[in-house]
Amino acid sequence: STHNELEKNRRAHLRLCLERLKVLIPLGPDCTRHTTLGLLNKAKAHIKKLE
């Protein structure tokens, strides 16, 4: 159905954006896999440090 396709595309776009963010944020050497929340929290902390 159309709704399923739209949802699939939305999730794919979100995944792509999170992958791009992961490249930009210093995550530390001990981190190989992150939850979305963990990645967003690290991004928030990094932005605050830059301010």
Rank of each mutant, 00 (worst) to 15 (best):
Asn41Ala: 08
Ile47Leu: 12
Ala12Met: 08
Leu39Gly: 01
Cys31Gly: 12
Thr36Val: 15
His46Arg: 11
Leu16Met: 11
Pro29Gln: 12
Thr35Ser: 12
Lys8Ser: 06
Asn4Gln: 12
Ile47Gly: 04
Gly28Pro: 11
Glu5Thr: 11
Thr35Leu: 11
Glu7Ser: 12
Val23Leu: 13
Pro26Gly: 15
Asn4Gly: 08
Pro29Trp: 15
Lys22Met: 01
His34Lys: 15
Leu6Thr: 11
Arg20Trp: 00
Ile25His: 01
His13Arg: 12
Leu40Cys: 00
Glu5Tyr: 10
Ile25Gln: 03
Leu21Asp: 00
Glu7Pro: 13
Thr32Asp: 05
Lys8Gly: 11
Arg15Ala: 08
Arg20Asn: 06
Cys17Ile: 03
Leu24Gln: 03
Asn4Ala: 07
His46Gln: 15
His34Asp: 04
Ile47Cys: 04
Arg15Gln: 05
Asp30Phe: 12
Lys42Arg: 10
Thr2Cys: 05
His13Gln: 10
Arg15His: 04
Leu6Asp: 10
Leu6Cys: 09
Arg20Leu: 00
Lys22Tyr: 00
Arg20Gln: 05
Glu51Ala: 15
Arg10Val: 10
Asn4Ile: 15
Lys48Asp: 02
Lys49Leu: 05
Ile25Ser: 05
Leu18Arg: 02
Arg33Ser: 05
Leu39Cys: 03
Glu7Trp: 11
Pro29Leu: 15
Thr32Pro: 06
Ser1His: 07
Arg15Leu: 05
His46Val: 13
Arg15Asp: 01
Asn41Cys: 07
Leu50Lys: 06
Leu50Asn: 03
Thr2Phe: 03
Ala43Glu: 03
Leu40Ser: 00
Lys8Asp: 03
Thr35Gln: 09
Glu5Pro: 09
Arg10Met: 08
Leu50Ser: 04
Ala45Trp: 04
Leu37Arg: 14
Leu39Val: 07
Glu7Asp: 08
Arg33Glu: 02
Ile25Arg: 04
Gly38Cys: 08
His46Gly: 13
Leu18Ile: 06
His34Arg: 14
Thr2Leu: 04
Leu18Lys: 04
Glu51Leu: 09
Ser1Asp: 04
Asp30Ile: 13
Thr36Ser: 09
Asp30Met: 13
Leu39Asp: 00
Thr36Leu: 10
Asn41Ile: 02
His34Gly: 13
Thr32Tyr: 09
Glu5Asn: 15
Pro26Ile: 00
Thr32Ile: 13
Pro26Ser: 14
Asn9Lys: 13
Ala45Cys: 07
Leu16Thr: 13
Thr32Trp: 12
Leu39Pro: 03
Pro26Lys: 15
Leu6Lys: 10
Thr36Asn: 09
Ala45Asp: 03
Pro26Cys: 09
Leu14Gln: 04
Thr36Lys: 10
